[in-house]
Design a protein around this nucleic acid. Structure first.
Lengths: 200, 200
DNA sequence: CCGATACGCAACGGTCTCGTTTCGTAAACC
DNA sequence: GGTTTACGAAACGAGACCGTTGCGTATCGG
């Protein structure tokens, strides 16, 4: 009788090292965070960085893209806690989380890869969006829908367009705005601008 | 007496082929348009595609990045003609030009490279922005400033924030919106949403 | 025609990465 | 102890590109 009978039978021999697996994924994210594109990533560099033999990598992933997909999938979306006191405050909280992330090299590079290689690696993007983007998108949608219901937002508001307004403006600043860190009051200014609109 | 004494003396020997130069740049843009990243581009592939010897490339550019920078610099920004009848119409025209471009694979891939490899190739991005982005940005700025002056837009409007609102929302749709071509009425809906704002 | 330069093409030595294999060792089970 | 599998390290042959060179030809000025 094996100690663990739950589920599948424990395979014989030395079990795979969880530590090695973590190290491999961490090394992959590290290299991506240093500005490597998917095509510049080499298995050799990952193995070396992780202190691991290439064998150990090939035993788990059959090709580079699979590894990158798994590595990016481990990144979860930290949806900030929302106070719910006002739609404006919640939107600012959401944008502020994006602002903080945009200052971290790793997040920025991950974003570059996901946005830039959509054409080349569709399923990479797809899985990453589902895992890391969708939760935040859902959070923002709920905030906006709540605002429409409570009257804080215009009753005829197109929710999707509202989301595009808010997060698109933030996205624009991370990509095309002046270089360097985004100012701390940017989320507030964006939300107020989107709420007020441009017309008099 | 040489036929052409204007400027520098014509160097002896066979002159460089303009046709070859065009072919090289066109081949580069072609490959980029097929989804190649800068690091995946190979001089050999470019030469082969252009029907040109590698020598001919190395005689003109000393490395790959120089070639890519030059190739992208040939892309000009087609600022659409603006009627000037109303700020709303002009903004829609500007966004519609972006919408049309987003449907073309080459433009999309070029954008991916510029946005995704900013960290790795700063001067590439810099030159491309100056050449291809700045003219449109300036056009939009003038439209918005005009609107503020004429009273079509709120007098206290932050012009830069207005630009971010409009083009950011468009950017969001090209990147995160539903797959496939952008609907024809999207520019109009974006402009109206940005003008009206989200508050009641 | 002559000298000079550019052309396309093919080949070179060199480097990098690939994915695989071999080796001796380590960790689990019986 | 014995079996089985995983481990890190090293080496392998194959292939892609690199940047350069040599070759025969083409195109300019004089």
């Amino acid at each position: 009788m094996s100690i663990q009978e739950s589920g599948a039978a424990r395979p014989a021999g030395r079990p795979r090292s969880e530590k090695a697996e973590k190290a491999i994924i961490e090394a992959t994210l590290d290299l991506i965070g240093e500005g490597m594109g998917v095509s510049e990533l080499s298995i050799e560099a990952i193995a070396s960085r992780a202190g691991v033999g290439k064998t150990t990598i090939y035993r788990r992933w059959s090709n580079k893209e699979d590894l990158v997909v798994d590595a990016l999938s481990t990144l979860k979306a930290p949806v900030p806690p929302l106070t719910g006191t006002s739609v404006r405050d919640d939107l600012i909280s959401l944008l502020d989380a994006m602002r903080e992330e945009s200052g971290m090299a790793r997040s920025r590079c991950v974003m570059n890869i996901v946005m830039g290689e959509t054409d080349r690696h569709p399923r990479l993007t797809e899985r990453f969006i589902k895992r890391a983007i969708e939760p935040r998108r859902q959070a923002m949608r709920e905030v906006i829908e709540r605002g429409v219901a409570t009257g804080e937002l215009r009753p005829d508001l197109d929710v999707d367009m509202g989301m595009a307004l808010i997060s698109g403006t933030m996205l624009w600043h991370t990509k095309w705005g002046p270089a360097g860190d985004l100012p701390a009051d940017l989320p507030e200014r964006i939300v107020d601008a989107a709420l007020a609109g441009m017309a008099p």
